[in-house]
């Protein structure tokens, strides 16, 4: 085990959790990520028993989840396994596919609320996604203030937002500002 200490994407020793009105925003620094892309002639694998979702979808099972990122390409999530070499583990599950480590490629914010209303209100301020058509099990990449972000609707009251790790501060500023304005209004 290395003796180097990691930093969160926002540059702190510990990842941030903050409550703003009905919304809680938490940096999920424990989530491992790896991309999985089909090669020619390789069938669609079922890594860790997970059926890979179709375009615009997100599927989860037992701590592992995947969302579609392009034709024949997915991002696989593994809760709590960020310190491990998850890409190697995934490659073992999908030998004939191209796998690349993505854990520190993204900052991941989990945004939760007691019900759907604050989540929908936040979505309509941040991204040009039809909140109504973005039911649990949906995942899309879209633009947020000139940055690319992945948006995942994990549940009625649970959204995940992934952005380039290097832009974590800018993305957080946008989320926080929108959340504060919704609360004050």
């Amino acid at each position: 085990m290395t003796d180097l200490s990691p930093l969160s994407a926002l540059g702190d020793a510990l990842p941030l959790t903050i409550a703003i009105g009905p919304l809680t925003i938490r940096e999920n620094a424990g989530m491992a990520l790896a991309s999985l892309t089909l090669r020619q002639g390789s069938g669609e694998p079922q890594p860790f028993g997970l059926h890979l979702p179709g375009p615009g979808g997100w599927k989860a099972t037992d701590g592992i989840a995947a969302f579609w990122i392009g034709p024949g390409a997915w991002m696989v999530e593994a809760e709590g396994r960020a310190e491990s070499d998850f890409a190697a583990a995934l490659k073992a599950e999908a030998r004939h596919c191209s796998v690349s480590e993505q854990t520190d490629g993204c900052v991941m914010f989990e945004i939760t609320a007691a019900d759907a209303a604050p989540i929908r209100a936040l979505l309509e301020k941040l991204v040009n996604l039809d909140a109504q058509g973005f039911a649990p099990g949906s995942a899309r990449r879209t633009g947020l203030e000139h940055m690319s972000v992945f948006v995942i609707r994990r549940a009625e009251g649970h959204l995940a937002l992934l952005a380039m790790r290097s832009a974590a501060g800018s993305v957080f500023h946008a989320i926080e500002t929108a959340a504060r304005r919704l609360t004050a209004a």
Partner: peptide
Amino acid sequence: GIHRELWFHEQGDRS
């Protein structure tokens, strides 16, 4: 008039 053109879904699925 009618034009066939290339668009890159940069902030999307990169198709």
